[in-house]
């Protein structure tokens, strides 16, 4: 009998479904546990929350894997993880997105009420563009908007001066706005 470790993901899943063998599920965890954790951190930006989210996803898989018909496991698992994280983030990125769409109180990106599909596309693009910011801007944007830290807390945590913190946030927002404009305007 072929060792489980040599099976493809899809073969392994079929094996797990038919036998309920936890050895197969352990191999799935070995292959993907750290990736699920990394994906969670990419979206949630917080270690503890990401560890919890990883376990939620693994528990979900353990209970329901036998029901799924999966053709491309890695991509499927990523989408499952991302959707789970977007649910956890619901509301947290809204403030940032609202700020990005306004200059001097004017809505420059005509954000308005958008289709949920578009919101999801913009949310994915937002996370992608945050990664493209320079280090200082990224740290300050993430701490301020996603971890809800005050300016003072950011100063204490990073060692940046207060004026620098505000400047990094301002410049970071500008850069995010510029890079997201094409996403907002895409119809």
């Amino acid at each position: 009998m072929q060792p489980l470790t040599t099976l493809t993901d899809e073969q392994l899943i079929e094996q797990i479904k038919s036998s309920g063998n936890s050895a197969g599920f352990r191999i799935i965890y070995e292959r993907y546990g750290h990736l699920i954790f990394g994906w969670c951190m990419r979206y949630l930006k917080q270690q503890a929350a990401s560890e919890d989210a990883t376990m939620d996803i693994l528990e979900q898989l353990l209970k329901n894997l036998h029901r799924y018909e999966i053709k491309d496991f890695k991509n499927w698992l990523f989408l499952l993880t991302r959707n789970h994280c977007f649910q956890k983030l619901k509301g947290k990125t809204t403030v940032l997105m609202d700020d990005l769409s306004r200059i001097d109180g004017e809505d420059v990106m005509e954000s308005g009420k958008k289709d949920p599909l578009e919101v999801e596309r913009i949310e994915e693009a937002l996370h992608e563009q945050i990664e493209n910011l320079n280090e200082h801007q990224k740290i300050c944007i993430v701490l301020f908007y996603l971890k809800k830290k005050s300016y003072k807390e950011i100063v204490d945590q990073t060692g940046y001066e207060m004026t620098k913190v505000k400047s990094h946030i301002q410049n970071g927002k500008r850069n995010l706005r510029l890079s997201l404009e094409h996403v907002y305007n895409e119809e």
């Binding site: 038919s18 936890s22 599920f25 546990g33 560890e51 353990l62 036998h66």
Partner: peptide
């Protein structure tokens, strides 16, 4: 923190999960 420390915690939690929650196969369901 490091990858090793985080994964060690996750490994332990994963083992507990397997102990508490048996895998459901198609036949079992």
């Amino acid at each position: 923190s490091s990858l090793d420390e985080s994964m060690e915690r996750l490994d332990q939690r994963f083992e507990s999960l397997l102990d508490e929650q048996p895998l459901t196969s198609v036949d079992t369901e």
